[in-house]
Simulated assay, not measured.
Amino acid sequence: MNRPVVAGVDGSPSSLAAADLAAATAVARSRPLVLVHGYLHPMGYGVPLNPYDLGVPAPTAESEKMLESVAADLADRYPGLRVQVRQVAGGPGATMVEESRRAELVVVGSRGVGGFAGLLVGSVSGQLAQHGHCPVLVVRPPEQPIPMGGPVLVGVDGSGSAGYAVELAADEAARRDAELVLTHVRSPERGAVAPEVAAEASTAEQAESAGLLAAAAERVRAAHPGLRVTERAVVAASPEAALLQASGTASLVVVGSRGRGGFVGLLLGSVSQAVVQHAHCPVLVAHRPEGD
């Protein structure tokens, strides 16, 4: 199935940055690009106010012009790009979650129209990160330049979700000809225990960390023999703190939708959620596409 790359566009600078990255990604993957605008009815939020009027509200001429303008600009700047535009009568968050069922990748800005400066992730990107049905790329605001030469960073914790994140991160690093950094974070030694007990626990944790990284690196090198892979064991107060700090020099951070110990009903784990909210570079949330 030739699944498209889908970008949510509302005219905001953040969404335009997302559309630009989505266009580059679509060309690199030889996929079509679909620009989607989920619009709300001016007063009824997409639902007719009159219960006897079951017609679907029409899109506005202004939003249609905005979409066509963005599509034309991208087609000019990315030769070979196949781009379509679509408006959907519904809330933008629900619209993009539904679009993700048929997409290879969904790209959204971290803030849309009406977002506050202190709210790094808006409701649309937040909903997609939680409930997307394919990988979701959240693009940082355009005022935060992306370090294009930086590595692709991914956390390793032994969970199935993190395993899929490593797979996606390796694919992205190979496409970008970038270094892949596999990171496992463990807590510092704590507590008033006997020195020999603390030393034994520390040795066991180091061995577990090294084992997880080695196993992940072996799988990556088998799939991508020429890829530069770095295994990085980190001692930090929390995995999210370590990943956020490392994101400052990365071109992309890839996170699983759930980590070790996550509950089935918790679609986005606390580490992934923190990284999506506060990373200094784009974040790819590794939702496995439906049907895969």
Rank of each mutant, 00 (worst) to 15 (best):
K65A: 13
S187D: 13
A17R: 12
V124W: 10
E179H: 12
T25W: 11
G256I: 10
Y52W: 04
L153Y: 03
G261T: 04
A75H: 01
A215C: 07
H37M: 08
V9I: 05
A274C: 04
R190N: 14
G11E: 07
P92N: 10
A19S: 11
G248K: 12
A72R: 06
A103Y: 11
A201T: 15
E189Q: 10
R260N: 04
A233I: 03
E240L: 09
R288P: 05
Q277Y: 11
G259N: 00
S238D: 00
G114Y: 05
R77P: 03
V56D: 07
E205A: 15
V197A: 12
A246V: 03
P188V: 14
V5P: 01
V47L: 05
R260T: 15
V283H: 00
H287G: 00
E196N: 09
D53I: 13
R228I: 05
P145K: 05
H280Y: 07
N50A: 14
A215I: 03
M66Q: 08
R221L: 14
F263M: 03
Q245F: 01
V285N: 07
A94T: 11
V85C: 12
V113T: 13
P141E: 14
A19E: 07
T203F: 14
Q273Y: 04
E98A: 15
Q84W: 04
A214F: 11
S161R: 10
P4W: 03
S187C: 06
Y52R: 01
P147F: 03
E104Q: 13
R86E: 13
P151I: 08
L227A: 06
V152S: 01
D76P: 02
N50T: 09
V255Q: 08
V34K: 11
L33C: 04
H184Y: 07
A237G: 09
G226F: 00
A178Q: 02
V166C: 10
F263N: 01
V56M: 05
A19D: 06
R111V: 06
P79S: 01
D292V: 13
F116V: 14
L227V: 06
A204R: 11
R101W: 07
